[in-house]
Design a protein around this nucleic acid. Structure first.
Lengths: 232, 232
DNA sequence: ATCAGCATTATTGTTGACAATTAATGAGCG
DNA sequence: CGCTCATTAATTGTCAACAATAATGCTGAT
C-alpha cells in the first residue's frame, strides 16, 4: 500500500523474541486498542496467569510499559493503565510539536534527494486514496503515520526517532483509538503534508519547521475539542 | 546556595527506596562520574554481588538504566555502559534545543510573576558567585542547572520535564564530567540567561524560545569542539 | 599450520517460593 | 452509632535455583 520505508529505525526490530518482549508487545496492543481499559488495575499474578508466564518477565514488561507511560505505577500499591486526560494529551502534543518541528528542520537539511522524490510520490498515492476510500479513515491514518515516520527518519536523530515512535505516537494512537472516529480532515492534512514536503525539497529549514509545527498544533486543536466535548 | 525551587517535579522523589531503586541510583552515579567507564561490560551476577543484592532487583535497575540510555543492551550478549560519541551527543543537544526552546516559550506564557521575580534574583546571585569563585566552575555549573531546571518547571509540561531531567541532562552531565574541565564561559552563559529571563518577563514567547535555542546550540558548538579535539 | 566442528563455560532468561509491605476488614471501645 | 486499632488478606518486592542460549576455546583433521 504505502511502500516500505527507505530505511528503518535500526533498533528494536530484529531483537530476540524473549518472553518479556512478547508479553510487552501483547499488553501494549491491549492497552492501545482498549482491551485493557484506562485505569484498569494491573495485578502481576493475574496477568502472568493470563499470558501463561511467570512474574519475572512480566514484571520486566510492566516496567517497560511504565517507561513509555502506558502504565503508571504507584510504588507499593500496584500499577494501573494510564488514564489519558486533556492535560496529558496537551503535554504530549506540545512535546511532539517541538520534536517533530525540529525533525522537519533536520529533514530539510539532510534528506537525500531520492528520498524527497519518494516522499512526493507517496503523497500522490495518498491523494488517490482519498478519492477512492472517501469516508474510510483507516488508510489515510496509515498514510499520515507513514509521512511523519519518514520525516523522523530523515532527521537522522536517533533520540528524536525513538521518543517519537517509541512513546509519543503510542499514546496518540491510544487516544485516537479510544475516542471514536475523528472527523476526516484528510484533505487538509494532505495539503499541509504537501507544503511541508515542498519546504523540505527547497531546503528551507525555517519554513519546514514552521509548517510542521502549525500542522501539529492544528491537529491538537481538533483533538482537544473532541476530548473536551466527551467530558461534558 | 540557590534556594529551593518554588515547586518540585511531582514524581520520582518521595518514592519508597526499594532495592532496585537504590542500586539504580548507585549505578547511575557510578556511570555518570566515570567509576564505571564507558564501554564497560555489565555482568549481572558480578554487579549483584558488588551491591549485595540478588539479580532480580538488579535486573530491574539495569533495564531502567537502559531506558535512560546510560546502558546499551545487546540481546543475549550482555549489557555495556554507553559509549558517548560525537554523533550521539549531537543528537542529544539537538533534541534538548527543541524541547528546552519549547519550555522557554511555555514559561513566557505561564510562569507566575513571583517566580519570574525569583528567577531574576537567582541570576543576581549567580552574578556575585562568578566574581567570588572565579575559576571554580562547580558553582556556576550548579547555577546553570538551577536556571534551566526552573524554566522546565515553569513550562508545566510533565513530558518535557521528565525527558529533560530524567534522560538528557544525565547524559550531558556524564559527557561533561568525563571530558575534563570545560572552559568557563560563565559570563557568556549568564548574559544569555539574563536575556532569556527578560524575554520571559516581557511575555515574549517567540523571543524566549529563540534565545534559548541559540543558548543551547552555542553550548553545543563548544562541547563539539572539545569532543572532536579529544579524538585526534 | 590453519580451519572446522564440537564441547565446555560463562551469562542471560525464566521460574516458583518466600519476605515485606500495604490495604481492607472486622472487632472492640468510646 | 461512629471511630480507632489490630488482625488478616492480597499484592508487590526479593531471592536462589534451574534452563536455555551464545561465546569461547579445544581437538583433530587436512
Amino acid at each position: 500500500m504505502s511502500g516500505t520505508p527507505i530505511t528503518s529505525i535500526p533498533d528494536e526490530s530484529l531483537e530476540v523474541p524473549t518472553l518479556a518482549r512478547r508479553s510487552f508487545d501483547s499488553i501494549k496492543s491491549d492497552i492501545i486498542n482498549g482491551q485493557l481499559a484506562q485505569g484498569t488495575k494491573i495485578v502481576e499474578s493475574d496477568l502472568a496467569l493470563k499470558y501463561g508466564i511467570s512474574r519475572g518477565p512480566l514484571r520486566e514488561a510492566i516496567h517497560r510499559l511504565e517507561q513509555i507511560k502506558l502504565i503508571v505505577r504507584i510504588p507499593h500499591a500496584g500499577s494501573r493503565v494510564v488514564t489519558l486526560d486533556v492535560k496529558m494529551m496537551q503535554d504530549i502534543y506540545t512535546a511532539r510539536e517541538a520534536l517533530e518541528g525540529m525533525a522537519a528542520r533536520l529533514a530539510a537539511r539532510l534528506m537525500p534527494d531520492a528520498d524527497i522524490e519518494a516522499l512526493s510520490m507517496l503523497l500522490n498515492q495518498h491523494s488517490e486514496n482519498i478519492n477512492e476510500t472517501a469516508g474510510k479513515a483507516y488508510l489515510q491514518r496509515e498514510g499520515d503515520i507513514d509521512f511523519h515516520y519518514r520525516i523522523a527518519l530523515a532527521s537522522e536523530n536517533r533520540w528524536i526517532q525513538q521518543n517519537l515512535h517509541g512513546e509519543l505516537y503510542q499514546l496518540i494512537r491510544m487516544c485516537r483509538h479510544q475516542s471514536g472516529q475523528f472527523p476526516s480532515r484528510a484533505q487538509t492534512a494532505l495539503d499541509q503534508h504537501r507544503q511541508i514536503a515542498n519546504a523540505i525539497a527547497q531546503r528551507d529549514e525555517e519554513l519546514a519547521e514552521l509548517l510542521m509545527r502549525r500542522h501539529i498544533s492544528g491537529a491538537w486543536e481538533i483533538v482537544k475539542k473532541i476530548l473536551e466535548d466527551q467530558n461534558d
